[in-house]
Nucleic acid binder design. Structure first.
Length: 184
DNA sequence: TGAGTGATCGTA
DNA sequence: ACGATCACTCAC
């Protein structure tokens, strides 16, 4: 099944509003402790530019937001509420700060193709994927433990819903943008 | 509904 | 140095 290529860096250098919905259904292979676990992405959220008041970059370029100002294809990771590492993928091109948050994944068995567990919510998804600060700025494409394949394990056509983003009520008009993408 | 938890950044 | 804030989760 996994004879497919990984998604390469140029894909992530497109606009986040293109990349975020297209990642739905894509397969993540996680290598850890000599085993491989398989997931597919069920929910993403787009954060787009300094003008987007929900995006961390609306506060400008700081040590934390630095990664988002780079070319797409690297991880942007941060700790929230002292407990949860949020896994984001930087998109777009240099000095065009964007990222997408991975809000949900489902683990499946490679052989039986049955779904094992639903990690709904970015804290839970980050935890099961072993997300840590060490991932900050690392390439999504060139790393040993984490791969995203250019294949949808499940048919995603006509199965994508949009919704406003979660937890950003402070963002004025931006809070209503339908930049949350859900695989149904 | 509210407690838990610690990095981050602006203000001093 | 200090304190407010926070792209969340779980138990009640």
């Amino acid at each position: 099944m996994i004879k497919h290529k990984q998604i390469d860096t140029t894909f992530y250098q497109q606009d986040v509003l293109i990349v975020a919905p297209q990642l739905l259904g894509k397969i993540i292979c996680l290598k850890a402790d000599g085993t491989e676990r398989y997931f597919f992405i069920t929910e993403t959220e787009a954060y787009r530019g300094e003008e987007d008041l929900a995006c961390h970059c609306s506060k400008g370029r700081t040590p934390r937001t630095e990664a988002m100002y780079h070319n797409g294809g690297i991880f942007y990771v941060y700790l929230i509420y002292g407990m949860y590492y949020m896994l984001n993928i930087v998109t777009g091109s240099k000095n065009e700060p964007q990222a997408l948050l991975i809000r949900g994944i489902k683990e499946f068995d490679k052989k039986t193709k049955k779904i094992i567990y639903d990690y709904n919510g970015p804290g839970k998804a980050g935890k099961i994927l072993g997300v840590n600060q060490y991932l900050y700025g690392m390439s999504v494409f060139n790393n040993n433990n984490f791969r995203i394949y250019d294949v949808n394990y499940f048919e995603t056509e006509n199965r994508i819903e949009t919704a406003p983003r979660v937890g950003i009520n402070y963002a004025g008009m931006w809070k209503n943008k339908p930049w949350r993408f859900i695989l149904i």
